[in-house]
Amino acid sequence: MSRLGTRPLQYVVLVGVAAIFLAPLYWLISTALKQPADIYQWPPAWWPHDLTWENFSLAWKAAPFDRFFLNSTIITVVGTAAKVANAVLTAYAFAYLRFPFKKVLFTLVLGAMMVPGHVTLLPNYLTVASLGWINTYAGLIVPGIGSAFATFLMRQHFLTLPSEVTDAAAVDGAGHLRTLWRVVLPMSQPMLITVVVITAVEEWNNFVWPLIVTNTADMRTLPVGLLILKDEEGLANWGTIMAGTLLVLAPMLLIFLVAQRYIVGGITQGALKG
């Protein structure tokens, strides 16, 4: 650490690392804004000469991106709300209420984390089919709203809250749901935001389940729609495909810029304490 010669070298490496992670994103954005002539030339144009939105309207024409966007938004908002509600209510019950065989039940909840999602694809498809939910929002959302990890995080957090506060609420005659809403949740805000953001990111990025459970273009989500766009354009029109890709990524990039400390905090906490 004391050797002076290593410090400049470390900066060179640091800049190199930044370049490796930024370059693909720069290439995505600049290609989406380039004229075809700039994309299909060699050596490549390192920046767009004339900015154009044409690629976005071409992507919109090739596939119903407005519909994909709507579907992704519905699934992310409703799915996240339901899953976080499940996590909070289950965590509250396990942290504050009495019930016979509570420990066994909690182990059952946590045990769901041991079941790899990919293994459940076929049976869940058949279950959803027998419920008549193929190609519906219910089929897209419901199988994913069970919560084990977020329940675990929330419960651990509830147990760290000072008991005086919840006791005081109970003495004041507040019912459990009131205590949860007025006392426990406001005191758990950072953890709650973390859980919401991580869940929303997962819902938005989910790929294999929407791919399997939907079968018409108007029910597809953005990540699946992107696969369709790519197959349709046949890799011949990179400008259009990159514009579509940017539409999929942009909302998550925005959320990341705004909430990255919650995401980072939640992930390191889950890893180091879990």
């Binding site: 289950t90 019950a93 209420l97 869940n124 419901v142 069970g146």
Partner: peptide, 24 residues
């Protein structure tokens, strides 16, 4: 209290049972 516990936990346990354990 038991009843409230059951009410709060049931939706989550139901989804977990049907879409995580039953598939196995």
């Amino acid at each position: 209290e038991y009843r409230l516990f059951a009410l709060l936990v049931a939706p989550n346990l139901l989804v977990i049972a049907v879409f995580a354990y039953w598939p196995i």
